[in-house]
């Protein structure tokens, strides 16, 4: 009886706002004879915010597509919320690298795509959150590239997903709108507690948003850096700058990338370590 009630409560909690856990094991993906990902292991906790960085063509989009069930692994397994197998997890939403708006549906209808009639009013709300409320009645062709990206972001958010995969969602935005959208994503993530995986070229964006920053090189994870800065994060702070520098150095394979080892640039490394544990 008591046990039953507890279980019920746990279930309710799990369905309300908790994110999905993602488990990738020995994941391997090759196109023809060219491997893109090789024996990649990654565990993402429910509700965690993970940013993935890496050079163009290193397989970031491929990794997201594998998680979303849009590609079949060559070997290894992908489990989303404990579930593996063909097709996407229904609680998962993928914001593609290109906006993929339906040109024949107006902006609002694009955001409301796949919603039940009862949920449809939410579309206007989310559209307002991305700052495009007054463009609801227009055709996507009439929007700028950045505005289209924001519509695509709204379309992904409106489903209140338990896991949200974002493939360079803010790439086409100016610096100001970009920061606004980052705050929006962070806000919604903190309120709803979904699991977020963000692919980005912008290391500052990764450090600003993520709990963990992951670097992919040559088909593997070569850096898995925890970001223990308090939120909301301030880009100007020395700890932020040091961590950004550290990750950037590692991405560019410049010396000074391994703070724990003997280092030609000990200052930056020391700073970082000190600050990381100070907060």
């Amino acid at each position: 009886m008591n046990n039953d009630a507890l279980e019920q409560q746990a279930l309710r909690q799990a369905s309300a706002g908790q994110g999905l856990a993602l488990h990738l094991e020995a994941l391997h993906k090759a196109y023809g004879s060219r491997p893109v990902l090789e024996r990649l292991d990654l565990q993402i906790e429910p509700g965690e915010f993970v940013a993935i960085v890496g050079r163009s063509g290193c397989g970031k989009s491929t990794l997201l597509r594998l998680i979303a069930g849009l590609e079949i692994p060559s070997a290894g397994s992908v489990r989303v919320g404990g579930r593996s197998g063909p097709g996407a997890h229904p609680g998962l939403r993928f914001m593609f690298q290109d906006p993929r708006l339906l040109p024949w549906r107006r902006v609002l209808a694009n955001v409301a795509l796949g919603l039940s009639p009862a949920e449809r009013p939410r579309a206007q709300e989310v559209l307002a959150q991305v700052g495009l409320a007054e463009r609801a009645g227009e055709w996507p062709a009439a929007l700028s590239g950045g505005q289209r990206q924001r519509v695509a972001l709204a379309r992904a958010l409106v489903h209140e997903p338990a896991a949200l995969l974002l493939d360079e969602p803010l790439g086409a935005l100016d610096a100001l709108t970009r920061i606004e959208m980052q705050q929006l994503i962070e806000d919604l993530w903190r309120r709803r507690g979904f699991t977020a995986v963000l692919v980005t070229h912008d290391v500052a964006e990764a450090v600003a948003l993520a709990d963990r920053v992951i670097l992919i090189e040559a088909g593997r994870i070569t850096l898995d850096e925890r970001v223990n800065l308090p939120r909301p994060r301030h880009r100007g702070s020395p700890a932020f700058a040091a961590l950004e520098e550290h990750i950037l150095n590692r991405v560019l394979q410049r010396p000074g990338s391994a703070p724990q080892e003997e280092d030609p640039h000990p200052a930056a490394a020391l700073d970082l370590d000190a600050l990381r544990w100070a907060v």
Binding site: G69, L70, F96, R100, G114, H159
Partner: peptide, 10 residues
């Protein structure tokens, strides 16, 4: 890409 999007959006 649009068909893929439609499918993955349920």
């Amino acid at each position: 890409g649009l068909i893929e999007m439609g499918k993955s959006y349920g």
